[in-house]
């Protein structure tokens, strides 16, 4: 169960990430604010992979949303290559995600009423350009390679492992420049988790995508170029062997 690398395996690397002085705080009762994210500097080289570990409530999801442009920090710089989120409006950030980002959620978030195939093709219905010719055939091929035997079966009827594979194909099919995964293996059993971990890191490599995964999974983290730890909103390189 292994996807063949895309034909153009030596794609240019995805954009690097530059985060500086980013803070996010949420309002609390009694008019106070709680800082949930406070990052001095965080850089990832173009095409590199980076794991982020940390206990729940440490600000992982907040960081991830900031990286995806879903959440605008009060201050600080969030830059992907030449794209500075601060200078992009909400619609432009939607477009940025559409063109550059492959996103994988812990809970897959497939549309349960749609077939596996329709789910992976769904992002192609968002944008203005028409879906590329032959995309459906490529989607079917990827689904078959990843062991989804019935691509026309409704997503709700697939096993959890299958659902996550479908979600990953949904993220990879547009050949994203950036791949971000939020606990992609946490909802899976060990065997499935290993498959998914391998799949993600191999595909990111094959696409040359810059890959960030928030995860507790040592298998997945072990496949990353570097691992950072987040704790109470502060980000620091993880100790070796952590």
């Amino acid at each position: 169960m292994r996807a063949t690398p895309p034909a153009e395996s030596s794609l240019p690397s995805g954009p690097g990430l530059h985060l500086a002085n980013v803070t996010v705080s949420f309002p609390q009762p009694r008019g106070q604010f709680q800082t949930v994210l406070d990052i001095g500097q965080f850089d990832i080289a173009p095409g590199a992979s980076c794991g982020i570990a940390g206990p729940s409530g440490s600000g992982k999801t907040t960081l991830l949303h900031v990286l995806c442009g879903l959440l605008t920090p009060e201050r600080g710089i969030v830059q992907w290559g030449a794209d500075d989120f601060a200078s992009l409006g909400e619609s432009e950030r939607d477009a940025w995600r559409r063109r550059n980002l492959g996103l994988v959620f812990q809970d897959f978030h497939l549309v349960p009423e749609l077939s596996a195939l329709a789910n992976v093709l769904l992002p192609f219905s968002f944008g203005t350009p028409r879906p590329p010719v032959g995309i459906a055939a490529r989607a079917r091929e990827m689904l078959r390679e990843l062991g989804i035997a019935e691509p026309d079966r409704r997503a709700a009827l697939l096993s959890r492992g299958e659902q996550q594979r479908v979600a990953i194909i949904r993220a990879l099919l547009p050949r994203p420049r950036v791949l971000i995964a939020d606990e992609p293996t946490a909802s899976l059993d060990r065997a499935n988790a290993d498959v998914i971990a391998a799949l993600l890191s191999e595909q990111a490599l094959a696409l040359g995508a810059t890959f960030i995964a928030v995860s507790h999974d040592p298998v997945l983290l072990g496949r990353m170029d570097q691992t950072w730890r987040i704790e109470s909103g502060h980000l620091a390189p993880a100790q070796a062997g952590a």
Binding site: D94, A95, R97, L103, F126, R170
Partner: peptide, 12 residues
């Protein structure tokens, strides 16, 4: 929100 995170514009 998932659709938006996947890049769907608000208009969609």
């Amino acid at each position: 929100a998932v659709l938006r995170a996947l890049g769907a514009p608000r208009l969609y």
